[in-house]
Amino acid sequence: MGLNKEPKNNIKIILLIILTLFILYILHISIGSYFGVESEGKYDNESPEIGFQVDYLSKILTVDSIYPESKDFYWNDITVASGNATLPYDTIDKGDQITNCEGEIKLVYELTGATIWEGEFS
């Protein structure tokens, strides 16, 4: 570990950093929402980015990846805007399968209106 020869200096730095993080936290509570608005609410109501493995023969979409992983997303918030498909229930997890896909499928995340996936099944 790289430390200064004068231990006092290390203590001063620790105290200043703790003070800074405390001030940042106060600012976060008081004006944090302002930044959320400035970033167009992107981080308040973020659309998930879901990667699917597509099986055209079995007409199944399997969830391959979800971002951000730290947040829970729900199948209830996703609608099949076009085509027919059977969505799973509860939270969106890797390995979940959308079955009976038919026609031109378009999955939309209702909270933001973002398109999650588009594709055509014969």
Partner: peptide, 20 residues
């Protein structure tokens, strides 16, 4: 840390506590 809803504590934003 100010602007994100989680104060930069949850992954992947936890990297920003290190930045600060």
């Amino acid at each position: 840390t100010i602007g994100f809803p989680d104060f930069g504590l949850n992954w992947p934003t936890s990297v920003h506590i290190l930045e600060a």
